[in-house]
Write a protein that binds this DNA or RNA. Structure first.
Length: 785
DNA sequence: TGGATAGATTTTTTT
DNA sequence: AATCTATCCA
């Protein structure tokens, strides 16, 4: 039986799987079979008589946790090992043991949105004025502090400038508001249990004794709070096995500290260290390139990448003219390869540094008819209607959740306006009540209109009624909310097709809730809410669908694909402008650059057979086009030049027109200039140096479009322009065709003149809005007028 | 109170 | 370029 567990393992992997007691550090390079080793190790422990309830396995994402659960289950059926993310584990500790330190069991997990709302209130509590930027920076400072287990008191002691002084005022007030709302933000899920474990010795030893074997994956990405939790649970039974790769540490911005893995041997002197060096994933060429890159990191123990794999194709570096062409080229290449039956769509992945870069890829794929999925946060739960319904569920499960209350108290409209709520909030704060509790006693609040009192009391009665059904399954709870809140009524009566769609989305959520209940033993509303709150972007990734995957480099961690494209390898993008000396980062710039380099390394080492890196001459961002310099990382690959081929896909240079700046090409703003030879020539020599020079963008010298009178007669009188038919007057309800997104329905028109906007719901691409003058739209069917 | 419009804002990455 | 937000008006 146990021989099966050691099948297809090399000696090091086998050692790691069968290591018995004591701390174990597994340094696992990319593609070295790390996941296989962890799952086999869990199975091996079970086979050696360790009770499943004694084993705790921590992964980085829910997806990884689910995969590991499935794999362990396949090896050892019925094994009930606790496998979860750090955050889910923290939430579980809080629910089970929170009463030891005053945390209620039914707390709500606040997402970024909720956090922001509560933070605004806390900033006001501190006598400051919330603004978009300070909410952000206070939020970041507080989050950073909690990740490092810095309490408000400690924070206060380290105040060193005006900003931290203000943050020190906001921090305790924010925590107080969280506790009053019986809520935890993401950071609290680690911070609160970590502090509790450090403070409460009895609790600590009780929990240490509960899990005798701990496994932590992606250990290089743990922050101080996560480190502390792992540490405190492994003092009496130090059978802790951590797996990671310092070269793949990419979450510094979230407080992760690479020292946790580098210092493991210091923290656990008895530690055994096993290195999994052989790479089974990538070709020799891909590894040569990845190795050439990562060697440039200085704060690193040298670690060669070795493989017995074939040499494979050279890694290709392509220079394109523009971001759009780059995207088109990627789409075309994929379409061709699938056409030639060399690969399936699902074999391809495109990695980007920032989510914004997915836009041009999206339209290129649509035009090339290449099926794709953008692996992003679950947009489904971000929809307003779904967030509203979730807020009802939250208020049902936690009546003190003021953020949820504020979200839905007037949704659907109940004539409860801002003034009423301000008065109510004042009362609630003074009495130390939740808003829902205060609503119940609205008649005691001075200064409320009788109508307002009634509306508030009615709302609180409705919520009390819903709360009495807190034990029903999540799916039927959604239905109850829909009916009792009047939400369904409001949507179905509105007559807008948009609202029908909303209703359909909520129906979809009933399905999601039912699915959750079907796969979870002790399903309840609270668990459903937690599941939603802690779901991550990669959880939406579906590897069974035959389509190209587009995702950020961060989301790519832990995955592998036969063919990988990494686009926009440009200074300011990868490495990000934030990591550059001129950027906004702190003084530790080289640390930031090193992390960007690791990010590039993670991307490259996802590739099994083919790797394509590209950058372009110019890139449009937020409506401005600039020259882009090739990423310094491309230059750093020089050592592996034998494994690289470079391609220049720019159009042949045009002759320089002496005064093109004063004679802008009319095609520029009529959007017809796609035929070769009609583009204005670009300045050649005095612009971008060929390879990394100054790490900043050079502004492109694009002729400023001259304002042209838009009257038809004037246009016709101008001999350089063909008369232009005035754009069709679109109306709401029209069916239109967009050049990229295809057929859609006009939902809304707004604004005037050049800025007139149109909002369209597409059959496939969802709802989007455009500037009417710029979008290329064609009327297909006139709707009813 | 909501709707429309003009004006400001985008700050990498995410549990 | 597109989206979010503050402000004005019906």
């Amino acid at each position: 039986m146990s021989a099966e567990l050691l099948e297809n393992l090399n000696p090091e992997q086998s050692d790691a799987v069968t290591h018995h007691d004591g701390p174990l550090l597994i340094l696992a390079g990319p593609g070295s079979g790390k996941t296989r080793v962890i799952t086999r190790r869990v199975a091996w422990l079970l086979h050696n008589g360790i009770h499943p309830s004694r084993i705790l396995a921590i992964t980085f994402t829910n997806k990884a946790a689910q995969e590991m659960r499935d794999r362990v289950e396949a090896l050892v059926p019925q094994a009930k090992v606790h496998i979860s993310t750090f955050h889910a584990f923290g939430a579980r500790l809080l629910r089970e043991y929170g009463s030891h330190f005053g945390q209620e069991r039914n707390f709500t997990v606040y997402d970024m949105d909720d956090r922001e709302k509560l933070l605004k209130i806390a900033i006001e509590d501190a006598g400051l004025a919330p603004s978009a930027s300070n909410v952000n920076s206070f939020g970041a400072a507080i989050s950073k502090a909690k990740n490092q287990l810095i309490t408000p008191e400690l924070f206060e002691n380290s105040v060193h400038d005006y900003f931290t002084q203000c943050a020190a005022k906001v921090f305790p007030r924010y925590q107080k508001r969280l506790r009053e709302s019986n809520a935890c933000d993401f950071d609290d899920l680690l911070y609160v249990p970590a502090l509790a474990l450090q403070k409460d010795k009895d609790l600590r030893s009780q929990l240490d004794n509960r899990w005798h074997y701990t496994l932590v994956d992606e250990y290089q990405d743990t922050n101080k709070a996560q480190y502390a939790i792992a540490r405190e649970l492994n003092l009496d039974h130090p059978n802790i096995c951590v797996v990671g790769d310092p070269d793949q540490s990419i979450y510094r911005f979230r407080g992760s500290d690479i020292r946790n893995i580098l210092d493991f041997e210091r923290d656990y002197p008895a530690a055994r260290v096993i290195k999994l060096g052989e790479n089974y994933r990538s070709t020799r060429n891909i590894l040569a390139v990845a190795d050439a890159l990562i060697t440039h990191n200085t704060e690193r123990k040298p670690k060669p990448l070795v493989t017995n794999n074939q040499e494979g194709k050279p890694v290709r570096i392509t220079l394109h003219e523009s971001g759009d062409q780059e995207a088109e080229s990627v789409a075309q290449k994929i379409a061709d390869a699938v056409e030639a039956k060399r690969w399936f769509y699902r074999d391809f992945a495109v990695f980007v540094r920032t989510n914004a870069l997915t836009r041009s890829l999206e339209s290129a794929f649509i035009q090339a008819r290449v099926p794709f999925q953008i692996v992003k946060g679950l947009a489904f739960f971000e929809r307003k209607e779904n967030k509203d319904i979730l807020a009802y569920l939250r208020l049902m499960s936690n009546p003190r959740d003021d953020v949820a209350y504020l979200r839905i108290v007037n949704e659907p409209a109940r004539n409860i306006g801002k003034k009423t709520l301000d008065t109510l909030a004042q009362f609630a704060t003074a009495k130390g009540m939740s808003l829902l509790e205060a609503s119940r006693r609205a008649s005691l609040v001075a200064g409320l209109r009788p109508g307002a009192v009634k509306a508030l009391v009615d709302f609180s009665r409705m919520m009390d009624d819903l709360r009495s059904q807190i034990d029903q399954p999540p799916a039927s709870a959604v239905t109850s909310v829909l009916d009792k809140s009047g939400y369904r009524k409001a949507l179905s009566e509105s007559g807008l097709s948009e609202d029908q769609e909303r209703l359909a989305n909520i129906e979809e959520m009933i399905t999601v809730a039912a699915q959750y209940a079907a796969t979870t033993p002790e399903a309840n509303i609270q668990g459903f809410l937690e599941n939603v709150a802690l779901s991550s972007s990669i959880d939406g990734y579906n590897k069974d669908q035959d389509c190209v995957s587009v995702m950020t480099l961060h989301a790519a961690k832990g995955l592998e694909f036969p063919v990988v494209f990494m686009v926009a390898m440009e200074e300011g993008i990868l490495p990000s402008a934030f990591a550059l000396p001129s950027g906004q980062g702190d003084m530790t710039n080289s640390k930031e650059i090193e992390e960007e380099r690791r990010l590039a390394f993670v991307g490259m080492t996802r590739a099994m057979k083919e790797l394509y890196l590209s950058h372009c001459q110019e890139r449009s961002f937020r409506g401005v086009t600039r020259y882009a310099l090739p990423s310094r990382f491309l230059a750093e690959l020089a050592r592996a030049r034998a494994s690289i081929e470079t391609v220049d896909r720019q159009a042949p240079r045009q002759r320089i027109s002496h005064d093109y700046e004063n004679e802008p090409d009319p095609h520029e703003w009529f959007g017809e200039g796609n035929e070769p030879g009609t583009k204005p020539p670009r300045p050649v020599s005095h612009s971008a140096p060929a390879f990394p020079g100054s790490p900043s963008f050079v502004k492109k010298r694009v002729p400023e479009p001259i304002k042209i009178p838009t009257g038809p007669s004037l246009l016709a009188a101008d001999p350089t322009h063909t008369p232009r038919v005035s754009p069709p007057a679109f109306k709401e309800g029209n069916t239109v065709r967009h050049q990229t997104y295809g057929i859609g329905l006009v939902m809304e028109l707004s604004g005037m003149g050049a800025l007139r906007k149109i909002k369209i719901r597409f059959q496939t691409a969802g709802i989007r809005s455009f500037i009417l003058d710029k979008a290329q739209l064609e009327l297909v069917v006139k709707g009813r007028s």
